[in-house]
Design a protein around this nucleic acid. Structure first.
Lengths: 310, 310
DNA sequence: CCGAAGCATTGTCTTGGACAAAAATTATCT
DNA sequence: AGATAATTTTTGTCCAAGACAATGCTTCGG
């Protein structure tokens, strides 16, 4: 093991690479066996020592896999080719409407102007209102930040700072809404393998202004506990969020099981990047492929369960 | 693999147990080899299937290990004996002052009264002020919730709900303070192996009222990036937070390295449960064994760097 | 009472094989 | 054609046992 070495930024052991890339040790070793990449040096005791460029390439591969590419197709490519692939994916809406704000925010991040960043976010939020802010600003901004990070234009700490400030702004804004004992009540969480909670906050920001009473459990709630929580809180809607990286099949299985665990009249929503890769339709599970769809789904829930005549 | 089975709450595969307990697959297999516990059943294809009681016991063991006990000493004990050990550790300040609020909050959690919980927290916060709220209320409350969860009195989802609501309250309260371009500037984060960010929020809640300008990166920033961020933001203080589970040696190594990476005049703080287990003193690293100490450390920073005559 | 050396304990990494799970492809039936 | 089912390919996870690295405790020497 080599904490001191890793810190000098030269070589990383397999644990560090697992952390940095999100690829498990088993996968790293398996790829080496099968594809011949990565092929780390070994230290005196035969342990793998990954170089920084190797890790960068692994990260690029992981990012593409997260949007559905299979490793065998891309593991042989060079760093440039990988970047080209990634660019190709996001090029379409690139020159569309108004990436002005995006560029401003990125500039603020790069100049480490925390106060400016806060102001810019808060400003835009006040201008647009919470819902439009989420739909029109935050969503493309997240993508822009993610892309900038992947192509190395943004440091990790700058990306962290962005996430952190965004969460602060959203949380504050959500809490500013008077809490109502509203209908429907929605339970928000993610499955145990899904650590990303930003999506939950964004859904909450969309639903709360609509008068929904959101109960967020944060990320990583075991299935059985989701059921218990839904019953305990008498939720009308149970909403799960999935990031792009989540394996579709696992999600489908878990959703089907959860559907069985919940009483019939409870609505089950599944949202997030991953849901766009889902083929099969699951009875009793409403897919929410993008954030805007959550509002539509809410409207249709209301017309269905709250007849206007009431 | 067995999502459907695991979901029924009967048996868990090794990945699920790793998630639930924080013990790596390697450790789980090693213990089975060395100590004969855990000894999970096997499914048709020879894969380990852990029972719920087994996992509970593993959790109890992990909890004790996190406060310094070695596995060999306790792995043979029964669930009751483990609980007794855990109780013994916290019994001292048990009957001390006013666990009234603690009991109230736990009752609210158990009755799933979200609104009541929010009110109770917000109420107490307004009554005490942010700093005393953190020191006198939140700290013991966290412990109480953790203990209740470990002894099975609290479900996971109830614990999640508590954390979530607490974060919301703290975040809102912190943001209510006018942001000043204050001195000192403190950079807050955790090392890559440390996913728990609640500690950061609590420190921030203590420092912001003191006029400190806090820049939180959230959890899991690589060392090299901490350095870059500290330089970019011209931080006066870099504060790291560690939960009890963090391995002491790893923390010491990383802190020493980080110390070398940072320019001399920058102050380096290390806080959180783990720091109480540290023996060696590290030159240039200020240990903050509990939250109250962070305020003292701040005071002494100020007298040192901001002579009163100025 | 402190620090180093030695010893016991505990955790991480290794290999290569087996097979489970997911995705893609092909075949079959409306 | 368009869906559904079966098959094949690809990919990921688990296993075993061994090696040894890392940690913490104890004893020894100052």
């Amino acid at each position: 093991m080599n904490p001191p070495v890793a810190l000098q930024g030269l070589l990383l052991n397999i644990s560090a690479v697992e952390r940095e890339t999100g690829l498990s040790k088993d996968v790293l070793r398996m790829w080496e066996r099968r594809y011949g990449f990565p092929k780390p040096q070994r230290d005196d005791s035969g342990e793998r020592q990954y170089s920084v460029p190797e890790v960068s390439k692994l990260r690029a591969i992981k990012r593409l896999m997260d949007v559905g590419t299979r490793p065998g197709k891309i593991i042989g490519l060079s760093a440039e080719e990988l970047n080209a692939q990634a660019d190709a994916r996001v090029a379409t809406p690139r020159d569309a409407q108004a990436p002005v704000l995006e560029r401003d925010i990125l500039a603020l991040l790069l100049s480490h102007d925390v106060t400016g960043l806060q102001h810019a976010l808060a400003n835009q939020l006040m201008r647009q209102g919470l819902q439009r802010f989420i739909l029109d600003t935050v969503t493309p901004l997240n993508r822009a930040v993610g892309d900038a990070w992947m192509r190395g234009e943004l440091q990790i700490f700058e990306e962290h700072l962005y996430t952190e400030q965004l969460q602060a702004v959203l949380r504050t804004s959500i809490n500013a809404f008077p809490r109502q004992a509203g209908v429907p009540r929605a339970l928000l969480t993610t499955f145990p393998n899904e650590p990303h909670g930003l999506g939950l906050l964004m859904v909450e920001a969309l639903l709360v202004p609509e008068g929904v009473q959101c109960i967020s459990l944060g990320p990583q709630t075991p299935l059985e506990d989701i059921r218990r929580a839904a019953l305990a809180h008498k939720a009308h809607i149970v909403a799960l969020s999935f990031s792009a990286a989540f394996p579709v099949r696992q999600a489908a299985d878990a959703l089907t099981s959860l559907r069985r665990l919940l009483p019939q009249p409870m609505t089950l929503w599944a949202g997030g990047e991953m849901t766009r890769r889902v083929r099969k339709t699951m009875p009793g599970v409403v897919l929410i492929p993008d954030l805007a769809a959550s509002i539509n789904a809410l409207r249709s829930w209301r017309t269905h369960y709250l007849p206007p005549a009431a």
